[in-house]
Design a protein around this nucleic acid. Sequence first.
DNA 1: ATACGAATTACTCAGTTGTTTAATTTTTTG
DNA 2: CAAAAAATTAAACAACTGAGTAATTCGTAT
Lengths: 222, 222
Amino acid sequence: MARPAEPRRKPGRPKEADGTDLRDRILDAAELEFADHGYNGARMRDIAARAGVNPALIGYYNGSKGALYEQVIRRKGAGIDIARHANLDALLAQSPTPALRDIVRAYLQPQWDMKERGPGGAAFVRLQARLHSEPEARALRLRREVYDPAAKRYIAALAVALPHLTLEEVSLRMAFLVGTYLFMLNDLGRLGDLTDGRVAEVEKDALLDHLERFLAAGLRAD
Amino acid sequence: MARPAEPRRKPGRPKEADGTDLRDRILDAAELEFADHGYNGARMRDIAARAGVNPALIGYYNGSKGALYEQVIRRKGAGIDIARHANLDALLAQSPTPALRDIVRAYLQPQWDMKERGPGGAAFVRLQARLHSEPEARALRLRREVYDPAAKRYIAALAVALPHLTLEEVSLRMAFLVGTYLFMLNDLGRLGDLTDGRVAEVEKDALLDHLERFLAAGLRAD
DNA sequence: ATACGAATTACTCAGTTGTTTAATTTTTTG
DNA sequence: CAAAAAATTAAACAACTGAGTAATTCGTAT
C-alpha cells in the first residue's frame, strides 16, 4: 500500500543486474507493439508479454497507455531531432550557403541510421509513418512537438539554396520531401511487390543515394 | 427466424424511397469512421449511429467489420483504378511516347478529383494514407489488389519516357511518387502548421501544379 | 535480525467490444 | 386478405479492454 502516488520513474539505481532498466524494456516492447498494430490496435497485455513482465508493471513504471505511447515517440524522436540540428549546425559552420544535396542528406541521415540500427530502429520508423497518417489529436500534437522545430530550420536553409522559390514554395516542397522518405522507409520491405522484387536487389546505400537525387532534383525544379 | 444464412446484398429493388440504399449509407458512414479512427479505432456502434441505423443492420447488410472495411476500400479504390487506366489509355492513344508530365498528371488526377468531391472523397483520401502505413496483412493484401495493377502500367510508361534509367530505378521512383502525393493529400489541411499558414494561401489548382513539377523533376533526375 | 519501503504478483473491476439471437414490424407474394 | 419473406429492432452474449487493488516478495539500511 506504500506505493507512491506518482511511481518514481528512475529509482536510485538500476534494478536489473544486466543493466537493462525494466522501464526501458517495457518501452522497447511497446515500440514494437505500437509499430505492428498502431495505437488503438496495441494491447497492454501484449506489450507486457513482449517485455516478459507483469501487466501491472506497465502502469507502475510508465503510466497509462497514452502516456506510454508518448514516451515511446519522444524517446527516439528526440534523438532524431538532435541529430538533425547537429548535422545542420555542422553544415552551416562550413559555409553559410550549403549545397542543396548536403542539406537533404543532413536531414535524412538520422532516420536512415536509425532504420539500420536493429529491429527496434526499424519499428520506430514504421511507428513514425503511422504517426504521420493519424489525424487524432494526440498524434498531431506529438508530431508538431517532435518534428516541427528542426523542419523549420531546414526550410530556412533550403530557402537560401533555392533563391528562385518563394518561401511558401520551399515549405511545400519540404512537405513533399517528408512524405517521400517516410513512405519509402516504411514501405521498403514491401516495395518489392510492386516491382516483382527488382528493388530489393538495390543495395541500401545506393537506395539513400537514389532518394537524395530524386529529392534534390524535385526541390530544384523550375 | 427466416433470415437467409447469407443475407442477400442487393434485394430486388432499392428498399429506400429516396433511392439511397441502406447498404450504401452504411458504407458511407463506415468510410468516415474508418478515416477518422483507423480500422482498430473504429467502432461498429459509431458507424451505425452515423448511418442512423440499428447496429445489427451492419452485420445484416455488410457482414463483419473486416468485410465492411474491405468493401469501403474497394468501392472507391476501384473507381480510382479505372480512371487511371482510362487516362493512360487516352494518353497512349495520342502518342506511344507521352510526355513525362502528362503521365504524372494522368496518375494523380483521379485522386485529386476524389478529394475535391465533398467530404466523402476527402475521407477516402485519408483512409488511403492510413491503408498505406498499416503493416497488417489485410491492409497489405488490399493495397496490392487495388493499386498495383495500374501502378505497373504506369511504371512501364515511365520507363519509356525515362530511357536513361533502368527499370529498377523507375520502379523505385514510382514508389517515391506515390509516397509524396499520398502524404500531401492526407496532410494538406495540416500543412499550415509547419509553415505558419503560408501554404494555405496557395490555391488548390496551383498546388497540383507544384506537385507535378516537383515529381516530374525528381523522376527525371540524373 | 528486523523493519521499512520499493518491486512485483495475482486478482478483480467496470466498461466496451463485435456479433448473435429471438421477437417484431414491414413488405411482398399468392 | 392471408401467408410468406424480408427488414428492422431491442436485448443479450461472451470475450476482451485498460486500469486498479491488496497482498506478497525482495533488497537493503539500520
